[in-house]
Design a binder for these strands. Sequence first.
DNA 1: CTCTCTGCAAAATTTTTGCACTGCT
DNA 2: AGCAGTGCAAAAATTTTGCAGAGAG
Lengths: 141, 141
Amino acid sequence: MLTSQKLASVLRKNGFKVTPQRLAVYESLAGTKAHPNAEILYNQLRPSYPSMSFATVYKTVEILSHLNLITVLNTGEGSSRYDADVSMHSHVQCTNCGRVDDIGPLSVAVLGQEVAADTGYEVTGQQFYFYGVCPACRKQN
Amino acid sequence: MLTSQKLASVLRKNGFKVTPQRLAVYESLAGTKAHPNAEILYNQLRPSYPSMSFATVYKTVEILSHLNLITVLNTGEGSSRYDADVSMHSHVQCTNCGRVDDIGPLSVAVLGQEVAADTGYEVTGQQFYFYGVCPACRKQN
DNA sequence: CTCTCTGCAAAATTTTTGCACTGCT
DNA sequence: AGCAGTGCAAAAATTTTGCAGAGAG
C-alpha cells in the first residue's frame, strides 16, 4: 500500500508518466479488500473519471503488476482480479458466491526451495488458491 | 488416469452418454504431461476426428472437471489448461517459455485446515502455482 | 425410438490494439 | 514542445450458446 506520492515517484523512476487515472486505479485497489476485476474497477472510477475507458484500466494494471505494485489473481473465472496487497499472502474463493478473501501468511516459506530442488526451476513467484464455502454462504445452507 | 472402460462406466453412472469424442479428449489428456489448453487438444484430436469442434472440447472438459476426472489450470495465460492427473500435486510454470511442469506432493497437507481455522471457510479444494525459469531456459541465458 | 450429444455458426466476454487527441514533464 | 498516455472504437482471443442433424442407450 503506497501513498500517491510514493506511487508517483515509483512510476517516474521507471519512466512512466504520472496521470490522475493511474493514481486513481491504484487508490481504488488500495482502498478495497474485495479483489475487483477490470469491470468493477471501471465502474468504480467512472463517477470521478467519466471518460475512463477499459483500455486505460487494462494498460494501468499491466504497468502496476509489472512494477510489482499489484498482484493479478487468476481464480478461474472469466476475468482477472487485482490486489494492491503484494505482501506474502494467499487467497480463498467461495465456490458459491464467488467472493475472494485473504489468508494470512501460511507456513510455506520453504516451499519455493523445495520446488526448486525438485524441478530445477529458479522459482520467482507463487500463487496459492483455496476454494470452498464462505461463512456467509455456509449459514444460508 | 482411468482406462476407457472405467471412464465409460463413470460417465454412464452419472447420466452422461459415452461418446468417442469424450473418450478421445480424456485419452489425449491422460497421455500427456504437457497440460494442453483447448486449442491444443482440438488440434491433436482433429486428425482422428476431423469433425471435432471447440464446442465439443469445451463441453467435454466441463463435464470431466465436474466429475473430478481432470483439473482445470488457471496459470494466468489467456486460456485454461487441463490436466488428467487429479492426484494431489502442484504446478510450476516457466515465465520464459510458458511450459507447465508438475511438482510432487508438497508438505502442505495441513494447510487446508489452517485456512479453514483462519477464515471460517469450509475448504474443498486448492491450487498452488509456482512461477520461475525452467532448466532449459536457464541454460539458454 | 427417445433423448442426449455433436458440430456448425453466431454470440458473448474479456482483453488487446490502432490512432487521433490530450496532457504530463 | 516533445512524447507518452488517454479514450474511443474496432479487433482479437477465448469461451459459451442455439439449434438441426447424428448417434448412444
